[in-house]
């Protein structure tokens, strides 16, 4: 579904992502782990189009997407969340979610003046859908409140609801479990698993190995911009190279 070939991203003299190649299978949950500074988020930003790779190819469903703008990539069905969630603080949760769906005729200026009935009809359906996703992540009761009141964990859930409203086929989750209390973490794991069984593919960055072990069979370990090894959660956590990457060489 998603294929990376020798993706490299340099910032001046620093090579943050170095010749990374891997594939994400349709219907899978693939995890990327690695110590801080390993280049995981930079890799996500390359895939999602926030900045283009310096070299290498990225294809999604068989078509190249490297060099496309973030909005164009999202419109092809590849969504992402942020490591530090980015809700629109002065907008209600409902507006946050209703923003996401693609192809809204009301986003065109003239349709609002010339075709208000159609816009209103779409909005009604859009609103139902947004309520559904807010209920799904357990934020339904707060639908009419501005997003700035949410806690860090709730913001992660809002971001999940928001991207899901656009019905993406592949979702990149940047640390869905970071800064989330243990109870909410269980909720997040459960939601991701439920979405996955309904056919959505996930690629996630995560430090919490419990979450990784619970969700993904394929784990990619990155260190210093490169892919160190790939395997299942149990294998990679026992691998001496992984332990070394995290903890340094034993004295």
């Amino acid at each position: 579904m998603l294929r990376l070939e020798a993706v490299t991203r340099r910032f001046g003299g620093v090579t943050a992502v170095d010749q990374v190649s891997f594939a994400v299978e349709t219907g899978s949950i693939t995890a990327v782990i690695g110590p801080n500074g390993a280049g995981k988020t930079t890799l996500f930003n390359c895939v999602a189009g926030l900045f283009p790779p310096s070299s290498g190819q990225i294809s999604f469903e068989g078509k190249p997407i490297h060099g496309l703008r973030p909005d164009a990539i999202f419109q092809r069905g590849l969504a992402r969340t942020f490591q530090i969630p980015r809700p629109f603080p002065q907008m209600t949760l409902l507006d946050n979610v209703m923003l996401a769906p693609l192809g809204q005729s009301g986003e065109r200026v003239l349709d609002n003046w010339l075709n208000p009935v159609r816009v209103a009809r779409e909005e009604l359906a859009n609103r139902e859908k947004a309520h559904h996703w807010l209920d799904f992540v357990g934020l339904g009761a707060l639908a009419g409140r501005p997003a700035h009141i949410l806690s860090g964990g709730q913001r992660k859930l809002l971001e999940l609801a928001r991207v899901m409203a656009a019905e993406p086929r592949l979702v990149l989750l940047d640390e869905p479990g970071a800064g989330v209390n243990p109870k909410l973490l269980d909720t997040i794991v459960e939601k991701i698993a439920a979405l996955n069984s309904s056919g959505i593919t996930f690629l996630l960055i995560e430090h919490n190995m419990d979450l990784v072990a619970a969700l993904s069979r394929k784990v990619i370990v990155m260190a210093e911009g490169r892919v160190l090894i790939t395997g299942d959660a149990a294998t990679v956590t026992r691998d001496p190279r992984v332990i070394e990457a995290y903890l340094g060489v034993a004295a």
Binding site: P70, F74, R80, E107
Partner: peptide, 25 residues
């Protein structure tokens, strides 16, 4: 008050997030 206005406010609040949600800011 339309979806167009909603996109404008989203861009006002966080342009990067709006683009990550498919809106060409």
């Amino acid at each position: 008050k339309s979806p167009f206005g909603r996109v404008l406010r989203a861009i006002r609040e966080d342009e990067t997030a709006a683009e990550a949600l498919g809106k060409r800011a």
